[in-house]
Simulated scan of single mutants.
Amino acid sequence: MHPLILIPARMASMRLPGKPLAEIAGKPMIVQVAERALEADCGLVAVATDDARVFDAVTDAGVRAVMTRDDHASGSDRISEAAGMVDPDRLHDVIINVQGDLPTIDAASIRASIEPLADTACDIATLGAEISDEREKTNPNVVKIVGTPLGATLLRALYFTRATAPWGEGPLYHHIGLYAYRRAALERFVALPPSQLETREKLEQLRALEAGMAIHVAIIDTVPLGVDTQADLERARAILAT
C-alpha cells in the first residue's frame, strides 16, 4: 500500500470559530495535527483547505497544503478533490483522512488505521476503542460501533449509532472518526447521495454501509481528544504543554 494522508480543514466551525488556527503549545492546531501525521511516517502528508489563512499557516510551517473548493459538504468530499490535486498520477492507492481537530492523536493510531486494508475484502478502515466511562455509553455524542469480531482487535462494522448498542452483556466501542479508504472506495463513496440512515443518525459512514461497502475497525487503546469547544481546546493545550 502507498498511503496519502490528507487533513481537511475549514474555518467555519459553529462551536469554535477559527478552530484550525487556535493556538496550542505555540502552534496552530492544524499544524499540530499535521505534525502528528508526519510522525506516523506512513505516507505523504498534505492539508486540504478552502481558506487562505489556513493555507498560509500550514505552508509557513513547512507542510504541504492545497486550496480546494469552498462548497464541499464534508471533509470526505474535500479530501477527494485534494487527492486529485496532490496525486494526479494516482501513485497513492490509499487515502487516509485525519480530521483537522485531533491535535493529540498519536502516530501509532494513524498507522493502525491502514492495517485492516491488508484484507482485500475491506473497502474502508477506521478506528475504535472500548468504552470505559459508563456515562459515554448513553451519550449520543459518542458514536458506537456495532460489529462482528474478525480478530482480537478487529471488527467488521455492521452499524454505527448514537444509541447505546448493542444491547446485553459485553463491551461497547467508541468510534474514532479517522478513515483509511482504498482510493476507488473513496471515489465511489463521495459519488453516492446521502442515504436514509446517514440522514437520520447524522453519521456519514452509514452511507457506505447502506451501499454495501465493507468497513473494518481496528481497536486501539485510547480515544484521541477531538477539539469542538473552548473546553476541549483548553484540555488539548494542557496535554500538549507537558
Score class of each variant (00 low, 15 high):
99 Q>R: 00
167 W>T: 03
42 C>M: 15
75 G>H: 00
79 I>E: 01
88 P>R: 07
2 H>S: 11
209 L>T: 07
220 I>S: 09
226 G>P: 05
97 N>E: 12
185 A>C: 05
27 K>Y: 06
203 L>A: 08
197 L>C: 09
122 C>A: 12
123 D>N: 11
9 A>M: 00
14 M>V: 07
214 A>T: 15
49 T>C: 00
83 A>I: 00
103 P>K: 09
94 V>Y: 05
205 Q>N: 05
172 L>F: 13
116 P>Q: 03
74 S>H: 08
11 M>L: 12
43 G>N: 15
15 R>T: 04
192 L>H: 10
202 K>V: 10
100 G>P: 00
123 D>T: 07
130 E>Q: 14
63 V>Q: 13
242 T>E: 10
29 M>R: 02
36 R>W: 03
16 L>T: 00
54 V>C: 09
193 P>T: 08
240 L>V: 08
185 A>T: 02
54 V>P: 06
93 D>V: 06
101 D>F: 03
163 A>P: 02
19 K>A: 04
150 L>E: 14
224 P>R: 04
64 R>F: 12
138 T>A: 11
136 E>F: 11
26 G>K: 12
140 P>I: 10
108 A>V: 13
184 A>T: 07
136 E>C: 12
65 A>V: 10
38 L>A: 14
152 A>D: 15
126 T>L: 05
90 R>V: 09
37 A>E: 12
44 L>H: 15
21 L>G: 07
1 M>K: 03
96 I>D: 02
42 C>K: 10
23 E>Y: 04
56 D>Q: 03
239 I>N: 06
164 T>W: 10
123 D>Q: 06
108 A>I: 05
45 V>M: 11
207 R>F: 02
195 S>I: 13
30 I>F: 05
118 A>E: 15
76 S>T: 11
93 D>M: 07
141 N>A: 11
133 D>H: 13
24 I>R: 01
215 I>L: 13
38 L>Q: 15
177 G>T: 03
55 F>K: 02
102 L>M: 12
210 E>C: 08
213 M>Y: 05
106 D>G: 07
180 A>Q: 07
160 F>G: 06
226 G>V: 00
111 R>M: 11
14 M>P: 08
69 R>M: 13
147 G>T: 01
60 D>L: 13
18 G>T: 01
225 L>C: 09
145 I>F: 10
79 I>K: 06
26 G>D: 14
81 E>Y: 08
210 E>Q: 12
142 V>N: 01
239 I>H: 10
171 P>E: 15
189 F>A: 00
27 K>L: 14
99 Q>S: 05
82 A>H: 01
137 K>C: 04
169 E>F: 13
197 L>V: 08
60 D>Y: 03
33 V>P: 05
49 T>K: 00
114 I>F: 06
37 A>H: 04
